[in-house]
């Protein structure tokens, strides 16, 4: 069987509506990367284990490699290029940089998506660490990522809402 059947899919990507023709078997990650030019959409394992593909779908972190693009019809998708709150995005970038939370950078977008979720929901630190455990990093040893998120949570608490 060939991919003769194409579906029209429309979703909001980083605030802009995208309309695409996709074969059902194409993953959201594949489509975001190859069709939409989102370089943060990356496959690390294709099994949901590593989280390199994590994107925000309707406000929650989702494994992009386990979602067919056709399923995202009507969804509000955010990638690490443009999180919903620009101030929060800037703060996350700043904290990641400051705490050396990046080495090769391949897993970084996925961790940024998790960080945004943690901040938006003001998770307590132990839950934040559990949440960050969803994704793999092989370079940094994680503790810089945890430091960055810890600082962001503290800033958020100080400022009442949003860093």
């Amino acid at each position: 069987m060939e991919d003769t059947e194409l579906h029209t899919v429309s979703f909001k990507l980083n605030g802009h509506v995208q309309v695409l023709q996709v074969a059902p078997r194409r993953s959201l990650t594949h489509v975001l990367d190859q069709e939409c030019g989102m370089k943060s959409a990356r496959v690390g394992c294709g099994q949901g284990d590593c989280g390199s593909c994590t994107v925000s779908v309707d406000g929650v972190p989702i494994r992009g490699c386990l979602l067919f693009a056709v399923q995202a019809d009507g969804a509000d998708i955010r990638t690490a290029e443009a999180l919903a709150d620009p101030a929060m995005l800037a703060a996350i970038r700043k904290a990641f940089k400051k705490h050396r939370a990046i080495q090769c950078g391949y897993c970084t977008p996925g961790f940024m998506i998790l960080a945004e979720y943690i901040l938006r929901n003001a998770l307590p630190l132990d839950q934040a660490v559990q949440t960050l455990s969803a994704n793999l990093c092989r370079c940094t040893g994680y503790s810089p990522i945890v430091s960055a998120v810890t600082e962001l949570l503290a800033l958020r608490a100080e400022n009442g809402c949003g860093p």
Partner: peptide, 8 residues
């Protein structure tokens, strides 16, 4: 699993 898995 983990959060993204549980969310789905």
């Amino acid at each position: 699993g983990n959060l993204p898995i549980r969310l789905r």
